[in-house]
């Protein structure tokens, strides 16, 4: 073997192993830890909490809507009764006016039909005595026409 090495050296122009051999090693103290986990900062309340919160808000809203509906019903009742209390008063007033106009119409009819024999003023067109609302026929005087 020694002869072979010498023979090899004699052929080559450069020395074969001029520097001592070195191995690739970790730095002193070792490598730093590898961060293979994803780093995400905290992102607020969990889904369950958000879901519960939305449910609570909606429940409160619907409760208020229901209360408001009940209140609107009472407002309607109040409005209705205020009108009911006024009905007799307004009816009495309009009845007086209706009676006045009706009498005037009957007088006009009597005046117009005075020459017709056996004419009954204000006779009902129905064969009974029940009250019925007469058709509103208005004779507008000449000077009131426009």
């Amino acid at each position: 073997m020694a002869n072979n090495l010498e023979l090899l050296q004699s052929f080559s122009h450069q020395p074969l192993m001029s520097t001592p051999a070195t191995q690739d090693l970790p730095p002193p103290g070792g490598y730093s830890e590898v961060k293979y986990r994803r780093y995400l900062p905290k992102r607020g309340p969990s889904g369950l909490v958000i879901f519960a919160g939305i449910t609570a808000v909606c429940a409160f809203g619907f409760y208020r809507v229901a209360q408001g509906n009940l209140e609107r019903r009472e407002l309607k009742r109040e409005n209705l009764w205020s009108r009911i209390h006024l009905i007799p008063l307004l009816t009495a007033e309009s009845d007086r006016d209706a009676f006045r106009r009706q009498q005037a119409a009957l007088n006009r009819e009597a005046e117009i039909m005075k020459d017709v024999k056996d004419w009954k003023v204000g006779e009902s067109v129905y064969n009974n005595t029940k009250y019925y609302t007469r058709p509103s026929v208005v004779v507008v005087p000449e000077d009131a026409r426009q």
């Binding site: 009816t91 309009s94 106009r101 005037a104 007088n107 609302t133 507008v140 026409r145 426009q146």
Partner: peptide, 18 residues
């Protein structure tokens, strides 16, 4: 309310003066 109808014209307003 009463079943009476006010004689209201669309062209003129007339109130029976009787």
């Amino acid at each position: 309310m009463t079943a009476t109808r006010d004689p209201v014209f669309t062209s003129t307003k007339f109130v029976d003066p009787t």
